[in-house]
Each structure stands twice: as structure tokens, then as C-alpha cells.
């Protein structure tokens, strides 16, 4: 489990940021993306994959969340 920060880019896409490794990347897909249920598996442009416990969508971005690493390159 690691702390991650998710924010929205100017184009409205989700941006993933992992402070511990100073890794910034765009999120290409997110499993659940509605107001009531949000999160699940997220895929990054670099091929990495993380899991956020599904939850109601955060009220505002950026926000810090806990995520589990499922699969990451390197």
C-alpha cells in the first residue's frame, strides 16, 4: 500500500502521482468512474496497474488516496 495523489489535468484526464517514487503518469483507464462508485483497478500510461478500494468519487481533486500496486514495470 502506498499513498498516491490523483489530480485532473487541464484536459480533464486523471493524473496519477506517487510521491514516494516521484512518479507522474496519466491514467488511461479506471474501473469504476461514477459518483457513487469510483476506483478499482487503474491503468497507467506506462503500463503500471494499481488498485484503489472502490468508494464514492472524491469531492474534489487533487486528493491523496491509498493504493495497492498490482503490476508495475521495472
Amino acid at each position: 500500500m502506498a499513498n498516491i495523489m490523483i489530480r485532473r489535468s487541464e484536459e480533464g484526464r486523471y493524473i496519477f502521482y506517487l510521491p514516494k517514487r516521484d512518479l507522474e503518469d496519466t491514467i488511461v483507464s479506471i474501473q469504476f468512474d461514477s459518483a457513487e462508485k469510483w476506483g478499482g483497478e487503474i491503468r497507467l500510461a506506462n503500463g503500471g496497474c494499481y488498485y484503489i478500494e472502490p468508494q464514492p468519487a472524491p469531492a474534489r481533486f487533487p486528493c491523496t488516496l491509498r493504493a495497492k500496486r498490482l503490476d508495475a514495470p521495472e
Binding site: 495523489m5 489530480r7 502521482y17 510521491p19 474534489r60 487533487p62 486528493c63
Partner: peptide, 12 residues
């Protein structure tokens, strides 16, 4: 960038 990100989250 670290502190900028923090201020974005904490203080909008």
C-alpha cells in the same frame, strides 16, 4: 513540484 502539489491539494 512537491510543495506545489501539496498546496494544490491542501489549499486548492
Amino acid at each position: 513540484n512537491y510543495i506545489s502539489r501539496h498546496m494544490e491539494e491542501k489549499f486548492g
